[in-house]
Computed example of a mutant assay.
Amino acid sequence: MTISSTSTLKGFLLINILLVSVICTGQENFTAFVQPAVALNYNVTNTYSHNFSVQNRNYLYDNESVQLTVRQIDIVHFSNLRIKDNQSLAFGILYRFRENFDDGTNELRLTQQYNLQYKTNVIRYGHRLRTEQRITSIKTTHRYRYRFSLDLPLQGEKLDVGEPYFVGNFENLLSVAKEQRPQYDVRFTLNLGWKITEKTKFQIGSEYRFEDYSQNLEQVLLLLSSLNISL
Results as ranks from 00 to 15, higher is better:
76 V>S: 13
76 V>T: 13
78 F>C: 08
82 R>T: 09
82 R>G: 03
82 R>M: 03
82 R>F: 00
82 R>S: 06
83 I>D: 01
84 K>V: 00
84 K>Y: 00
85 D>P: 08
85 D>K: 09
87 Q>C: 09
89 L>P: 08
90 A>E: 13
92 G>Y: 09
93 I>P: 00
94 L>D: 11
96 R>G: 04
97 F>K: 12
97 F>I: 14
97 F>C: 03
99 E>M: 09
100 N>A: 15
101 F>E: 07
101 F>W: 12
105 T>K: 03
106 N>A: 09
106 N>P: 06
106 N>I: 05
110 L>Y: 10
110 L>T: 13
110 L>K: 02
111 T>Q: 05
111 T>K: 03
112 Q>M: 01
113 Q>T: 13
113 Q>N: 11
113 Q>K: 07
114 Y>I: 13
114 Y>N: 15
115 N>M: 09
116 L>I: 08
117 Q>H: 04
117 Q>R: 06
118 Y>T: 12
118 Y>R: 12
118 Y>W: 14
119 K>C: 04
120 T>L: 02
122 V>D: 05
122 V>L: 11
122 V>S: 13
123 I>C: 01
123 I>T: 11
125 Y>P: 01
128 R>E: 12
131 T>Y: 02
133 Q>R: 11
135 I>E: 07
136 T>F: 06
138 I>Y: 08
138 I>P: 04
139 K>L: 06
141 T>D: 03
142 H>F: 15
143 R>A: 02
144 Y>Q: 07
146 Y>K: 07
146 Y>V: 11
148 F>Q: 08
148 F>R: 07
149 S>C: 12
149 S>A: 09
151 D>R: 09
152 L>F: 02
155 Q>D: 11
156 G>V: 02
159 L>T: 10
162 G>I: 15
163 E>L: 05
166 F>I: 07
168 G>C: 12
168 G>N: 09
168 G>I: 13
169 N>S: 12
172 N>K: 13
173 L>A: 10
175 S>Y: 14
175 S>M: 11
176 V>H: 09
